[in-house]
Design a protein around this nucleic acid. Structure first.
Length: 451
DNA sequence: AGCACA
């Protein structure tokens, strides 16, 4: 045969090899399909798929050179080209004599995938989108994300290696569907390998890590501060001492935020004992007192940074107050002590609803709605979630907790209920999360609307 | 539509 050294890169005729190189394979191509393709011609002893920059190439290694020759010869003269799932596959002898290392450790995977998100906007991909994408293959237990020199990466933990493998096979090299991404984002490609991890350690629910098996996991302060909405030092202290009293400041107050609205919002986490509202620095602030620190912590974690109304209106910023017991001198439209029954006392502008005593009306079915983590995107079928706290977090599924609660709200007789608030308070808090999903066309609550 | 992996 002719001299090897002068061969062009792609030769029309190549020295036979028991290894065949295949190209133009479909994405879904599996090892099994390669075996099927080669089986008529001999014993396939090894394969390698997902090769090449587009991962649409593969190798088949036969036990015997003659078998490889038989396959090449057959398709060289066949009127029907070799096909995998109807897609024409091009065959030639490989320039290697054997497939090396087909089953590397990278191919015998575990239940945890290492996902690298490529693309200019990769780091803008939310953990919720990743969760959505990978949930298509099975229940995603945990996700952690991090940035390394390799870029934006995530570890995605499935219950078993099989599920992880199916996700890897289907998603590796694919782009995240654009409809799952914010419009302005460019393509984000997933590169997936197996991680050596088997069980990720997720200590907090945060913007970088999630444990979908544990809805009660505390929310990391970092998740709250992540949006830069609450930079570190109000008072210089890195960690504010927790308190049963929250200080709420309300940003972008396009709509009236009343005592009753606050009461309703904060009552979702436990009984609100007292509320005092006041103006400060031109904005509205309020102190909300719970009976215990824990409740306040939960409320703060869940509510921080979220908006009472859709559209970014009335965004809540929460910190711990130094108070532990508010002194409410008078019940009016700015302050109230809910622990004192029949406190209609001097009410210069009595709220319509002011007569009710302790307002420990039922909190939602779950104390922590977890709605923080509701993906903003439209959910097609989500995987079933392990706990009620997560199940309704996303999208269209009708929130369940609030309507019932609303009906029992002693402060809002049915007639005065702004319709917008009938939807699940707390149930939709994605990145632009709002406690009340629909922006009111008018202030949602107006004290002068008496019956 | 053109040769991987460690």
């Amino acid at each position: 045969m002719s001299s090897v050294s002068s061969q062009p890169q792609f030769r029309l005729t190549q020295p036979p090899s028991k290894v065949l190189h295949l190209r133009n394979l479909p994405w879904e191509c599996t090892e099994e399909e390669l075996v099927e393709l080669g089986k008529p011609f001999g014993k396939v002893v090894n394969t390698k798929c997902n090769v090449g920059p587009n991962r649409n190439q593969a190798f088949i290694e036969f036990a015997d050179l003659n078998q490889a020759i038989a396959m090449i010869s057959y398709y060289a003269s066949s009127s029907e080209p070799a096909q995998v799932r109807g897609k024409t596959v091009y065959l030639q002898y490989s320039n290697r004599q054997e497939i090396v290392n087909n089953k590397t450790t990278a191919d015998v995977g575990g239940n945890v995938l290492l996902v690298t998100i490529e693309g200019a906007d990769a780091r803008l991909v939310s953990i919720d989108v990743l969760h959505l994408v990978f949930s298509a293959f099975g229940f995603v237990h945990k996700i952690t994300t991090f940035e390394k020199t390799a870029g934006f990466q995530a570890l995605v933990q499935f219950s078993d290696a099989e599920t992880a493998s199916s996700a890897k096979n289907a998603l590796d090299g694919r782009n995240i569907p654009s409809y799952l991404l914010p419009e302005h984002l460019g393509p984000c490609t997933l590169r997936i390998t197996y991680s050596a991890h088997t069980d990720l350690s997720v200590k907090f629910q945060s913007h970088r890590s999630r444990d979908y098996t544990n809805a009660n996991l505390p929310v990391a302060p970092s998740a709250i501060d992540a949006n830069g909405m609450f930079s570190v030092g109000l008072d210089g202290k890195k960690l504010e001492p927790e308190s049963n009293v929250l200080l709420a400041s309300i940003e972008n107050m396009q709509y009236a935020v009343t005592l009753d609205v606050l009461h309703m919002v904060f009552s979702s986490f436990g009984p609100v004992q007292k509320i005092a509202m006041f103006d400060k620095n031109g904005g509205l602030q309020a102190l909300i007192q719970y009976p215990d620190v824990q409740t306040a912590v939960v409320a703060k974690e869940a509510l921080e940074g979220h908006c009472i109304y859709d559209g970014g209106f009335c965004k809540l910023h929460l910190s711990y107050s130094r108070h532990s017991d508010l002194s409410i001198k008078v019940n009016n439209d700015r302050s109230r002590d809910y622990t004192i029954p029949n406190t209609v006392m001097m009410n210069p502008q009595p709220s319509i609803l002011g007569q009710q005593p302790v307002a420990t009306h039922g909190p939602p079915a779950h104390p922590y709605p977890g709605a923080h983590f509701a993906p903003t995107t439209e959910h097609h079928q989500m995987m079933p979630q392990p706990s009620a706290g997560w199940a309704t977090g996303g999208g269209p599924p009708v929130p369940h907790s609030m309507p019932a609660q609303m009906n029992h709200n002693p402060y809002l007789p049915p007639g005065t209920m702004p319709p917008q608030m009938g939807h699940g308070i707390m149930m939709q808090m994605p990145s632009h999360g709002d406690l009340l999903p629909h922006a009111p066309a008018m202030p949602p609550y107006r004290p002068d609307h008496r019956q």
